[in-house]
Design a protein around this nucleic acid. Sequence first.
DNA 1: TAGGGTTTT
Length: 685
Amino acid sequence: MRDHSPPLCPEWESTSPGRSARYQALLESRRQLPVFPHRDVVIHTLRRHQVLVLVGETGSGKTTQVPQFLVEAGYRRVACTQPRRIAAVNVAKRVAEEMGVQLGAEVGYTIRFEDVSHPKRTRLKYVTDGMLLREAYGDPSLTRYDCILLDEAHERTLNTDVLMGLLKSVLPRRPELRLVVMSATLESGKFTDYFDRAPLVNVSGRMYPVRIEYMPQPVRDYLLAAEEAVMRIHRDEPPGDILLFLTGAEEIDSVCDRLRWRVRTERDSRSAAALAPLLALPLYSALPPPKQQLVFEPPPPDGTRKVIVATNVAETSITIDGIVYVVDPGFVKSKIFNPRSRVESLLVSAISKASAQQRAGRAGRTRPGTCYRLYTEASFQQELAEATHPEILRSNLATVVLTLKKLQVQDLVHFDFMDPPPPETFMRALEMLYYLHALDDDGNLTQLGSRMADLPLDPPLSKMLLESDRFRCSDEATKLAAMLSTQIVFVRPRNKQAEADAAKLRLMSEAGGSGAGDHALLVQVFEAYLRHGQSTRWCYEHFLNDRALRHAVHIQQQLARTLHRLQVPLISPGVRAPDRWLRLRQCVLHGYFMQVAFWRRGKSYTIVRDEQTVFLHPSTVVQHRPAWVVFHEFVLTTRNYIRIVSEVRPEWLLQLAPHYFDEREYADGASRQALQRLGRYRASK
DNA sequence: TAGGGTTTT
């Protein structure tokens, strides 16, 4: 067949001197990718259609090649979104190399905290979906781009879904704009239908075959079944590493311990002397990077087999080569949002077929493999959902609503989401933004709301921060907001729990005792980390997550810059001021008055807004059982917990949020009675 | 009495 396609890189062919051997070798391997023969179809289809849906499995080369095709076809400003930072960076590096250009010039990337692109020269930019959404704030029609690719659309992240809806509304306004939606195999029809029967290009993947084995009977205890499966593979199957998916760090650590113990015991007994050593390695995002790194290192050359016991990080974010066996119990811990109780929580639930397929695929990256599903084929066929429930249906929409308002979307009810969230969820989001004074009575964005959208924070945190200068503690508030925006910084290893708790109490006493509260402790930890020169060793000694703290420092710097731009002065009452934490607690309440609970006789607290009974999370440093507390989040695990808690004085409630604590707004019940007592108390003073 | 994974000019 004759090649009618345009020449590769028409302009650079003559101008770039560096058509090195390396470039030629890369070009040759590019030509071998399954997506390469589809180059002309992609280019020609986009001449006649505004939108193209491209479906390609792992190994098709779609992420690196399709954006290059478009640049070669003459598009001058191409953006390709990725759900994860790490992917945006790595793919941009690879593509710059393939094109024989300098990273940050013709090809670049933009992620939070890092912009390696040139405003004029960059023709192809990889960008996180959240970042592109932010760019749209100042340019709602995304006029900076003539072609946008949404990659990994099947993951249906919150930001991808919002971008898809936004782009769908932009397309009619910008007939010259081109959009390519790239996705894994499942649900391609949903994407083509959503974009008014957009043309579809199907690209095969390149993977080794993976044999799937099911259980003949449902298992009673998936942890035990997982352990047995790993042991059986290790005893009976040829060499090759194992990947086991579990739901959380605690499960993972305990299963790793049990596997180590079982292999050791079997090897010590005479009957199983032939059993090879087994190296059990945990993998989850909160794990310190050196420990994460271990999963990539080859095992000792004495026949040791690796088993990596991982959360969902290993499903998409982290790719480990050399896996031959996957053990999939079929569960994941995922976020759910209950609009009735207004609570987001984590719950263990069954995975989807798409997720099961993705997990199985992890066994076939370097050679043919096997996936052991710890459920029956009937439950796979009949009980698992086709695809994972989109994140937008499982989230609190306050941030989404604020973003859309900022993007000048007037009519949220008719905004075309691929999967519209239930109206009740929208009502809850509107209600929250209204109470925060981000929206006015007509649902329009207020000046405060517009400023809140500028901050990369949850709305209550934005509100807290933007008005923190009123409490003369904006310096403390930026530190707190940064600490609340990163992972939990306290590390509590299973075998050193008492030591870890003692280290935390020492940090607390430096802050002036437990009465200061959990919020104050976070600020204290942040400041101590800076005082100790952001030392990794200091973190280790004090049972703190070094990476999370480093992240918090980045966020704090960005918040301080944004506050400066928004003309909020950065002030502090001073580290020795006796009212320092008191001011901070008032400031927190200013943003989080919707998350207040009061002590009720017995042993529990009651949340004001819905009279839910809750307990202080065991991680709290608050020991003096205050009558009223503000909390950062509600966690549903073995009990209803409130986590990150500080005492508030009851009179603050009426001072700071009289519109929310008006007793007449509450039905007769415990909350109303508590507020009535508060009113009488106030009147008597 | 204990924390899935992403991400934000």
